[in-house]
């Protein structure tokens, strides 16, 4: 059974149709890249999968691990192992990174019938995860993303992913705005978290991140539909030729 089965998914925002029949199957241990020009619906697909209230699903289905994903509240999706690394991580002044992450971690544990961990034990667990993103413990006492640079915010998303250990990780434009060092840290983190039972969807405009995280499949989204799927070489082809030859100028890139 596939981990994720998207069939004929249509979704709109503010009455405007954005996804127009997306089909995609993701199995455990696979890395899928979803590429496409601006406005093709890449980020919408990512947001719909985690249940963002701004998007309305008008047709189609998404089955995750045998369950109807679209029927689940956003927090239930997270507890079931679906994680989105946001393109624009949100700043939450007044809540420390440590408190936030432990709250999330414990909610996920509770949903599985496990005991909550106390702050001290959680610190131990964090220590190892922090190494993955090359951070010291002081970052945990800062308010969530508040005053973080663009690169720090993306690293924080990867740290959250490392702690929450999702089965399906979706990275939405995680490479945008990163310098080469931050890009390497983010990519190393994602690679280190790869497990046979997990899967990753990477949403990106550019091929650059795919030099570091090698996808098994590459899909091109255009005007709300997947217009081409292939192996990792498709990404290189797109890099060389642009999107025009596939999209027929359906959107302005």
């Amino acid at each position: 059974m596939a981990l994720l089965e998207i069939s004929d998914l249509c979704a709109s925002a503010s009455g405007k149709e954005i996804l127009r029949g997306v089909d995609l199957t993701v199995n455990s241990a696979e890395i899928h890249a979803i590429m496409g020009p601006n406005g093709s619906g890449k980020s919408t697909l990512a947001q719909v999968l985690v249940g963002h209230p701004a998007y309305v699903v008008t047709r189609g289905s998404v089955v995750y691990d045998g369950q109807d994903l679209l029927d689940m509240e956003p927090e239930v999706r997270a507890q079931a192992g679906v994680f989105l690394a946001f393109q624009y991580p949100v700043e939450i002044p007044g809540v420390t990174n440590a408190y936030f992450l432990r709250a999330a971690y414990n909610e996920i544990r509770k949903s599985k019938g496990l005991e909550e961990v106390d702050p001290m034990d959680f610190l131990d667990l964090l220590e190892e995860k922090l190494k993955l993103v090359e951070w010291g413990p002081e970052i945990m006492q800062r308010a969530v993303n508040a005053g973080f640079s663009g690169g720090e915010k993306k690293r924080n998303e990867i740290l959250q992913m490392a702690v929450l250990e999702p089965r399906l990780a979706i990275l939405d434009e995680t490479d945008s705005g990163l310098d080469i060092d931050a890009l390497r840290i983010v990519a190393d983190g994602v690679n280190a978290l790869k497990r046979p039972e997990n899967a990753t969807i990477i949403v990106t405009h550019y091929q650059r991140l795919l030099n570091y995280i090698v996808p098994d499949f590459v899909h091109v989204l255009s005007a709300g539909r997947i217009v081409r799927s292939g192996g990792k070489e498709l990404a290189l082809e797109l890099e060389a030729k642009g999107y025009e030859w596939l999209t027929g100028g359906a959107e302005a890139a």
Binding site: G51, E73, E75, A78, G94, V95
Partner: peptide, 24 residues
């Protein structure tokens, strides 16, 4: 939504954000 997307239920997220507002 960000908090919910990390597994924190709606009501708890609301309380946390309200508290955060005060905590400043």
């Amino acid at each position: 939504f960000y908090l919910q997307s990390r597994g924190i239920p709606r009501v708890a997220a609301r309380k946390l954000l309200t508290y955060a507002f005060a905590a400043e």
